[in-house]
Amino acid sequence: MIDIILLTLLVVVAIAIIRMKDLFAVVMLLGIYGLLSASFFVAMDAVDVAFTEAAVGAGISTLLMLVVIAMTGRKEKTNRHKPLPALCIVLITGGLLIYGTFDMPHFGAADAPIHQHVAPRYINDSMAEVGVPNIVTSVLASYRAFDTFGEVVVIFTAGIGVLTLLSVARRKEDAEKISSINDSMHEQHLVIRIVAKMLIPFIFLFALYVQFHGDFGPGGGFQAGVIFAAAIILYAMLFGLNTARKVINQTFIQLIAAVGVLLYGSVGIVSLMNDGNFFNYNVLASDPIAGQHLGILLIEWGVGCTVASVMMIIFFSFAGRLELHQHNERVKNQESS
């Protein structure tokens, strides 16, 4: 029942996104869309996915879009030029998918092929083979560790891509001028700053908990990385980019992003050296289960490092660009007045 309500809400939000012209509202709705789908994932028993979607769909991507809107303006032009061809394409694609549903296994059916063929081994044997209660973690970090490695590389790629596009080489005096304006802006929110200062250590603690607890409950390197980055981002938003930049050296986080990928990969290389296949954790220790535990621990750290640092890289790149925009505009205004 709850899933039908959630799906209906999702449809309402989707329609609202289509119709809204105010990009700020659209982005907020997108955040709601992410949060609703996260709730839907909980109803579908996918707690790990829900956790991630809430952090990413409702958190990080909304934040990034808001920063971008601050630079580009929040109004969408009213003329929609080609609704008809778009409608045709959408109707054909959707029609094809609906046509496909007629032979699909029914929703929730336990005898569907996906529940019969590969999955039972994960459910029945993962405890004996990997020794981790959270099946999602054992599939993600061991059975399909290579996919997850690919995922880390995707994130690393995005980080480098954003850096190439947005990093600005600025002169020193400019940077100082920008920062002096910036710091004065943040002195007003005294209460929030104090509360945040108290909160941030707990967020770090929570990130660590999520990092280590991924074996037993929902969580793991990716979620922990996002939470860790969120704490830093919060700090940066309240205390100014430059203060944050002083705390966290930019070259250093790039290094950590690379180290994360390398750490993950070297687990595989060490297993090669020990005559196992790539990512075969069994050979990492004398006892296969201990090896699996060690392997999973290490790669989760690799994921956590890369994700946290890339999220920070992305945020700092966007925010740095925004700062530059605001600075330029201020200069322009001063000149004109």
Partner: peptide
């Protein structure tokens, strides 16, 4: 190492990428 050639094929350029950053 010959048995591991298929994975080395992909993993060598992959691992080289983050090392470049250093």
């Amino acid at each position: 190492m010959i048995a591991h050639l298929p994975i080395l094929q992909v993993i060598i350029p992959l691992m080289a990428a983050p090392i470049c950053l250093m």
